[in-house]
């Protein structure tokens, strides 16, 4: 195939953008479902009963930092500084995994400690479906980054010439991050928000 494209953008870069557009609608529908059912059915355990905002804030912060680390990894790869790239890449993967660890901890806490299962009530159903789907996205992202990291370590095939491979993964990673910020705001913060203190 010829390398030239009409727009000058690579096919794969366009593809990831189109895919992310589609994925937006996916999350929009799930968040929509959550919001439609917010406050209906059996109310307890509800958001205010189970959420621990400080803990989740920490995991949110970790995920946000992983995006930053991703930016560094990409920047070093473009400069062909493979060693620095590997360090930042590794830290991104670790932070992504940490986030997943937090989520597993959080889910088991809700499930075993707060008696909130997907079958309990509409909140459980919509909460686990939404955050679970996001967790699945993060998991796929970690595997994807892991494969790139593995290729770099053992096959030496990741260089500035193939930076597009990382670029795609990075775009996906940032997207998953942004989605989490929306979820954190809509589900966690609004869920526990009880109004401004009246003076």
């Amino acid at each position: 195939m010829s390398d030239e494209t009409t727009t000058g953008l690579s096919h794969r870069k366009l593809l990831i953008w189109v895919f992310l557009g589609s994925d937006c609608m996916f999350f929009a529908s799930l968040i929509g479902t959550y919001l439609i059912y917010k406050g209906s059915g059996v109310l307890h355990p509800g958001p205010a009963d189970v959420f621990d905002i400080p803990t989740t804030s920490v995991s949110t912060f970790v995920l946000l930092m992983s995006s930053m680390s991703m930016v560094f990894a990409y920047a070093y790869l473009v400069r062909d500084d493979i060693k620095a790239f590997r360090i930042w890449m590794f830290s991104t993967i670790i932070m992504g995994s940490t986030f997943l660890g937090f989520q597993v901890f959080e889910f088991s806490e809700f499930y075993f400690h707060d008696d909130l299962s997907p079958q309990t009530n509409l909140f459980g159903t919509t909460f686990y479906a939404l955050t679970g789907t996001h967790g699945l996205h993060v998991t796929i992202g970690v595997i994807w980054l892991g494969i790139i990291f593995y290729s770099s370590l053992f096959r030496n095939t990741v260089t500035s010439k193939t930076n597009l491979d990382l670029d795609l993964a990075a775009l996906y990673w940032h997207f998953v991050d942004i989605v989490w910020i929306v979820i954190f705001a809509v589900v966690y913060l609004f869920g526990t928000f009880t109004g401004f203190p009246s003076s």
């Binding site: 589609s22 609608m25 996916f26 929009a28 529908s29 479902t33 997907p118 009530n121 479906a129």
Partner: peptide, 25 residues
């Protein structure tokens, strides 16, 4: 299509979770 199909996919996944894992959607 790329904007509409995710919506039905979510609806179908919700129904599938209901039928297979007793979710409450």
């Amino acid at each position: 299509l790329i904007l509409a199909f995710p919506v039905i996919t979510v609806a179908l996944i919700e129904l599938m979770l209901d039928r297979t894992f007793d979710f409450n959607f």
